[in-house]
Every structure is written in C-alpha cells, then in structure tokens.
Design a protein around this nucleic acid. Structure first.
Lengths: 237, 237
DNA sequence: CAGTGGTCTAGACCACGTT
DNA sequence: ACGTGGTCTAGACCACTGG
C-alpha cells in the first residue's frame, strides 16, 4: 500500500517532472510542459503548477525564460569544496586551550608586506605572533599582521583569553575573506615554537588568510599546522 | 531623483523588512509583521505579502513557524571553504597532458581496503596506478581502486587519452563524493614516479577521494601532488 | 498573433501553537 | 477561539518571445 500521507499537489507535479528528468526521458534542453499545460493535465490552478516549476528553477533543475518556456537545465557540477577547520575553535570546544604570545609589536611595512596589506612602504603595522596549544602541546603557529587604522587598540589587548582573530572579528567583521592553502616545511623558528624536534617530522599545512573590510585590508595571517593529524574534509575509513 | 523603474510590490516589502534588519532596528529573534499585517499595511493581497516573507525565509534572513509567526534569524556564519583544483583538468586546459600508466591490475582486498571499499576481504578489486604529466614533467601521482561491479570493463580501458576518473564518471556518475586532504612525505615509490630526486624536496599534498553510487563504493583514489606550486584558494599577493 | 512566464488579487480551507 | 503560516483557486494584466 502506498503511504496514506497526502502530498501537496505542487510536490506531485515536481516529482512528475523530476522523474522524467532523472530517468533520462527528458534530456538536457528538453522543453517541459508550460504552466498552463501542467495546470490542465493535473487539474490544478496555474499558481500551483507555477510553484512546482518555480521551485525546480530555484533548485537549478530547470531554466525558465519568459516567452519561451521552461527547459531542463544542464547539471552544473559544483566544484568540490572542503571546509577549513578552525583549529583554535576546535581546541576550545573539545580540548584545553591556551596560548603562548611570542611577540606583539609595531613593525614597518617592507615592500612585500606593503603590497599584501595594500599600504605604503614604511607604514606602521601591528604584528602578533602566537602559538596555540592544546593541553600545553603546540597545535598551531600563528603570525598576524594588522592594519592599525582598522584596529588601533590591537596591540594593547590580552590574547590569553581571546584570540587575535576573535578580537578582530569583534572590532570589525570582515566583509570578505581570502584563503590560500599549501604544504611547506616549517622554518627553524616555527619548528622550535611548534616543538618539532625530531629530524623526520616537519611537514606542515600552511594557511594564509586575508581579511578585507570593503576595500582595505584589515589583517593578513599565516597559520602553520603540523600535518600530522591535520586533515580537511570528511573522515574516510 | 529616484529611479523611474517600477519595482514589484513583493520586492518593496522585502526591502522594507531587510532595511529594518540591516539597521539593527529588528534584532535577531524579533517577530516581524505577519502576512496579514503586511498585506494590510502595504495594501496588497496576502499572497504578495507571503511571497516577500517566503523569499526572505529561503534566503535565511527569516525563520518562519506555523502558528507562531516570522522571526529575524541569527546570521549563520558559513564555514570558510576552498575548492579542490582538478590537476589533470588544469593541465588539459592550460598545458600539455600525458599519462604514464604504472600499473593496471586485479587485486584482492586486504582488510583495510575491504573496509574502505565496503566489500568483503579477498573480494576482487581493480587497481590503477598513474602518473599525470604536464609537458612530460610529473605533476600528480594517482592510485585508484575500483569496484568491479560498478565498472566491469575498467581494467580494459586505455587511459592515455581518458583518465580513469573521467571514465568512471562516464560509466556511472557518483551520487556522492567524499574528500580528505592532508600533507605527507611521499613514499620511495611515489618519489621515484614523481621525479623527486633531491633530498630536500618532497612535501606533498595528499587527497583521498571516495566516490559513492548510492550505498556502494565505486572507487577510492589517492592523489599525491608535490606541494611545490600546489595551492588551494585564491592567490594572495 | 498566440503562448510563455512574471506579477497580483480576493477570496478559501487546513494544521498548528498560543491563549 | 484566535492568529499564524501552508496550500490552493480562478480569475486578471503585463512584457516578452516566437512565427
């Protein structure tokens, strides 16, 4: 016996169309019945038939054009995406978080940094260097350069309780964020701070992150994670 | 002077609500006017007021509940995501692609592989090993294990022109894909195949990808890329 | 021109949660 | 009982497209 649940009519129409598409019966580009056609053949008002087509349009299964009709859209293979885990947040939620402040200082922009921060050379910038620890074990090395105009008090904060990233999100949420990820061998300083003493170990994931507030760069941070145990995406086992 | 364009009424209502939310006038959790309220105050039918609320709901700005009303939703910070570049596709588009077939054979599933492929131990599997080259320079090492039930002819194909991945997508598009990314030091065999001769070089990005067709595993592939020049996300310069 | 989708109306019935 | 959103109707006018 079929379910006793009474499905809304617009859902029946959607399923009718979805089935024709999924079965290959209506290949890409096929013109599907118009709102009036569906209204007639399903004994339904046009508004109801319209809703079915509208939602299939929203879901990307159909393309609709006034004066032309509704057509089976070609499936757009959305590029595979992985989430970037927030190491500090994970520790705060599931571990014991602490932070070693390696440095917190004013610097002058060299040529490269001026270019990346979209400021002039020799402009003053703030720079913070941190090691994030889980149960007193180094988990991530962070270096962040901040535009003083966006966060004048950045250098006066106490980053034992609140991370620099969290503070910046507080004083001015970025309007846009850029990420870049690669794998590197850490520098001697980074190895030391991360406690990577053995000769063999050392592969690290490096994430570069730039926060924008409209057209000005708020901050540029570099995160170095030991590759050991650092993964993106779902567990595969 | 304001634009002469005549906006649809439901858009005016949407803007009215959006403005109240954006200005902080209606903080998260605030109950917004009901469909009937809006219909009355905008001298519009309920269906039109409804459409405005419906679309704001779809866009995540509102949460609606029958019997209760519509409420300002709390902005959900979508986790940052990066796209996984398809190395082979990039070479085919912007370089000169070729492929060295290292191996193409039947294997028996050991315990680990059986678990990952969701088959029984000692079941037959197909395994392909490839090196993808750009201008005859190794760019990616690939190892792919395939379920024979899904692609019985997998092992008989010629993978010089079409990649194993492309072939599998052809015979049976996956219904779901899992990714996992990490950084590793390549094995001796991988180093040899990738032409990593110098002692210092060697950090690699490893991508594990599992294709599902409904509830069966179609394939499990491991991609090894020299980290040198391999990046995810937007260029930051 | 006839047909399409886009917008809109003024009603209606229902299931649901609060009171 | 009342108001909410969810579904639905039978009309309507419009801008746009094709033949």
């Amino acid at each position: 016996m079929s379910d006793i649940v009474k499905l809304p009519r617009f859902l029946l129409i959607k399923q009718y169309i979805e089935n024709h598409i999924a079965s290959g019966n209506w290949p890409v580009g096929t013109r599907v019945p118009s709102e009036n056609d569906l209204a007639a053949s399903f004994s339904v008002s046009r508004m109801t038939a319209r809703r079915a087509l509208k939602e299939l349009d929203d879901e990307g299964l159909l393309t609709r054009a006034p004066g032309l009709g509704s057509f089976v859209a070609k499936p757009k293979a959305l590029p595979p995406q992985v989430e970037l885990p927030n190491v500090v947040e994970n520790i705060q939620n599931f571990g014991i978080y602490s932070c070693r402040i390696v440095g917190l200082e004013r610097i002058q922009a060299d040529m490269l940094m001026a270019q990346r921060m979209r400021v002039n050379m020799d402009d003053e910038l703030y720079k913070g260097t941190f090691v994030h620890l889980n149960r007193d074990k180094p988990a991530q090395f962070e270096e962040i350069v901040v535009n003083p105009l966006v966060a004048p008090a950045f250098i006066k904060q106490n980053y034992h309780k609140v991370t620099a990233d969290a503070y910046l999100n507080w004083v001015a949420a970025p309007s846009h964020v850029e990420y870049r990820l690669s794998a590197v061998m850490p520098s001697a300083m980074q190895r030391r701070e991360l406690g990577l003493t053995h000769e063999g170990e050392g592969v690290c994931i490096k994430i570069t992150k730039r926060n924008w507030s409209q057209d000005t760069v708020m901050s540029l941070s570099t995160l170095i994670n030991p590759a050991e145990g650092y993964h993106l995406g779902k567990e595969i086992k």
